[in-house]
Design a protein around this nucleic acid. Structure first.
Length: 298
DNA sequence: TGCCAGGGCGCCG
DNA sequence: CGGCGCCATGGC
């Protein structure tokens, strides 16, 4: 389990000055016990769209309306910039999934494979992706982000989300459902969202009106029911729903199937792959397989 | 130029 | 149910 090694008010490193708008002194936290945590893999595996690399081992971005940076200090140790002890315990520890035992999950995923051949494949995928953490992002932001992601590429997804935040967000935060609902489809279309404009607007309207209660989805233990609630939104199909439940609601049993996963399963599991067998951790296997296929085998 | 990007909808058989 | 054309945009 993660623990705080050091907390201080420190001067902002040179390469983070611009990101932190010229601030000079910020709360800085050094956190140990992070296990296999990899900053670069976690923020560069296509689950979060508002973080960017600022050097080899540091990513900076916005979540919950706060700008933070996360750096890899050494194996098992990370540094959090502009994060106090209180904020860490209240929010960022959970956001970064530092309260999950990924070593145990990794072992479970390998052990659960039905035969030696599949175990070998899963072992390779786990080793390739080891250090990835499934972030616990904000539900509404994740919903809109993965609607934007459909038939799109990551650089453009990031660009559209940045524009959405700049135009309709308060002080750099992700826009509220009310703000996007009020904006209207035409205005959203003007932001180069294309055919997704009406989908974004529909999602925002349903959330703003209470017709879709994201708090209820968060509290719901029945995965199929969660999936059904999200898919009432026009433009949310099986893939987007699974991504939103995985990255925005901590539903780690979600198993999003995209072109990369389809390729991976066809190539490595010709006799079939039963995601349900992996139960609560299917989504983490999915992320490892995605990373393995997309970034290692690619 | 055509193809693809972490898809989904509407329609068709 | 499964397949297929279409939907906007930008990078290659």
């Amino acid at each position: 389990m993660a623990y705080i090694l050091n907390e201080s008010i420190s001067s902002v490193p040179e390469h983070l000055r611009t990101f932190f708008d010229g601030e000079t002194e910020i709360p800085t936290l050094t956190v140990g016990g992070c296990g296999s945590f990899s900053v670069t893999k976690t923020f560069d595996c296509g689950q979060a769209f508002r973080f960017d690399p600022v050097d080899e081992t540091t990513f900076a971005g916005t979540a919950f309306g706060d700008k933070i940076a996360v750096g890899q200090t050494s194996p098992g140790v990370i540094t959090l910039y502009k994060v106090s002890r209180e904020q860490f315990e209240l929010r960022w520890q959970h956001y970064l999934a530092l309260d999950e035992d990924y070593d145990a999950i990794d072992r479970f995923l390998i052990e659960t494979m039905p035969n030696e051949r599949d175990r070998a494949v899963m072992t390779a995928a786990v080793e390739a992706g080891r250090g990835i953490r499934i972030l616990r992002q904000e539900p509404f932001e994740t919903l809109i982000s993965f609607i934007v992601s459909q038939n799109n590429n990551i650089p453009r997804i990031k660009k559209i989300i940045r524009t959405l935040c700049d135009t309709y967000g308060e002080n750099g935060a992700f826009p509220t459902a009310e703000a996007l609902a009020e904006a209207g489809t035409d205005a959203l279309y003007e932001l180069k969202t294309g055919f997704r404009a009406k989908y974004i607007h529909d999602a925002a309207c349903r959330v703003a009106s209470g017709e879709l209660d994201l708090g209820k989805v968060l509290a719901c233990e029945d995965y199929a029911a969660c999936d059904a609630m999200l898919r009432t939104v026009h433009g949310v199909g099986p893939k987007v729903s699974a991504c939103v439940l995985l990255y925005g609601f901590g539903k780690t049993e979600a198993f999003p199937v995209d072109v990369w996963i389809r390729k991976s399963l066809e190539r490595h599991f010709p006799d079939g792959f039963d995601a349900k067998r992996l139960g609560k951790y299917a989504g983490i296997a999915q992320q490892y397989l995605f990373y393995y296929e997309r970034y290692i085998n690619g």
